[in-house]
Design a protein around this nucleic acid. Structure first.
Length: 167
DNA sequence: GCCAACGTTGGC
DNA sequence: GCCAACGTTGGC
């Protein structure tokens, strides 16, 4: 990965907790609660404002890609880590020495056609997606080809080619 | 609810 | 540094 500038991502959320509809209502949301170093590092080191995100519903019936979001703020310390009342509390992370970080994402679109995990599995061109190879990783890079194809499968006539923040 | 796959922890 | 035990993710 290294110096490669990534533009496309997939981020998982359990729709019972936070769905694409919730993001649409709230417009923007901090992606807090990630407690995996690989996922954190993608957010901390590689995400840029304007990067586009496939919003994936995990642990759902069915699971799959539900819509599109965009990175609207760079990673900052995840405050839920030092909130004892939070389900994401982690005593090893403090305001002085934060261990966990989160970006902010903003709503872009809800796909007209939900693209299920099963469809992704049945699409040969998508067989190398991190989604299938590292099934437990909740924040992961997506190639341009994969991104464009999933947008197409999801009924988005013109997938945004360029990542552009709204003002 | 089950469980495979994987990440983390801690004893040694 | 190894690895067993344990915890979590997420599909089914």
């Amino acid at each position: 990965m290294g110096e490669t500038t990534k533009k496309y991502w997939l981020m998982k959320s359990e729709p019972d907790e936070f769905s694409i509809a919730d993001l649409k209502t709230k417009k923007r949301e901090r992606w807090s609660g990630v407690r995996n170093y690989v996922a954190r590092n993608y957010m901390m080191r590689d995400m840029q404002i304007g990067d586009l995100v496939l919003f994936y519903h995990s642990n759902a019936k069915p699971s799959g890609v539900a819509g599109l979001a965009r990175i609207s703020a760079l990673a900052i310390p995840d405050e839920t880590a030092w909130d004892r009342k939070s389900g994401y509390f982690d005593a090893k992370s403090t305001p002085d020495k934060p261990r966990w970080y989160c970006v902010e994402v903003e709503y872009v679109d809800t796909f007209k056609k939900f693209t299920s995990l099963e469809e992704i599995k049945n699409t040969p061109k998508l067989k190398d997606m991190a989604l299938l190879r590292y099934s437990r990783l909740s924040v992961q890079p997506v190639t341009t080809q994969e991104f464009q194809l999933i947008c197409k499968m999801s009924g988005l006539a013109k997938p945004p080619k360029e990542a552009r923040p709204v003002t």
